[in-house]
Simulated scan of single mutants.
Amino acid sequence: MMLLTPELRAALHAQCDSEATDKRPLVKLFNPLSAATWLASELAEDGDTLFGLADLGFGCPELGTFSLREIESLRLPFGLRIERDLLFATDLPLSVWADRARKARSILQAETLLRRARDTATRIADRFPPSG
């Protein structure tokens, strides 16, 4: 699987060029055999350097840069490779992901907590719609 489609590359480049300070992650990459997960919000002009949140599964997710080529070159047991989560989408900025992931000590755990919070907020909003 190609980790980044031409459309994703263009969107990541556009966010890199944007003056916005808190961009949302557009791509989630993961190791199917471990907790290693990367959320990328930007791709530098070199076509290799991604910026985002990296979690190698040791309990300390960090903001920074990582190499797309290095991630693509990883060969895992059983012929597996790093994959892209095709269903990943978020409206939350990278700072929220970083904060929750650091507190939860994992991007995967933060994703679960953020999903639960969103679902709870939706249920409350459905139960108590605004009067007007």
Rank of each mutant, 00 (worst) to 15 (best):
M1L: 09
M2Q: 14
L4C: 00
P6K: 15
E7F: 12
L8D: 03
A11E: 02
H13T: 12
H13M: 07
A14I: 01
A14V: 03
S18Q: 02
E19K: 04
A20L: 08
T21D: 11
D22H: 10
P25C: 06
P25F: 02
V27A: 06
P32I: 00
A35Y: 01
S41P: 01
L43N: 06
L43Q: 04
A44K: 15
D46A: 13
D46P: 11
G47R: 04
D48F: 13
D48K: 03
T49H: 12
T49M: 05
G52P: 02
D55A: 09
D55N: 05
D55E: 08
C60S: 14
E62P: 04
L74R: 07
L74F: 07
L76T: 00
R81E: 05
L86A: 14
L86P: 04
T90S: 10
D91T: 09
L92P: 01
A98C: 07
D99L: 14
D99S: 15
R100I: 11
A101N: 03
R102W: 10
K103G: 12
K103Q: 09
R105T: 06
I107N: 03
Q109Y: 13
Q109H: 07
T112I: 15
T112A: 13
L114M: 13
L114T: 13
R116G: 10
R118P: 03
R118L: 09
A121K: 11
A121T: 10
R123M: 09
D126P: 02
R127L: 05
F128W: 08
F128N: 04
P130E: 10
P130W: 05
G132S: 11
G132V: 06
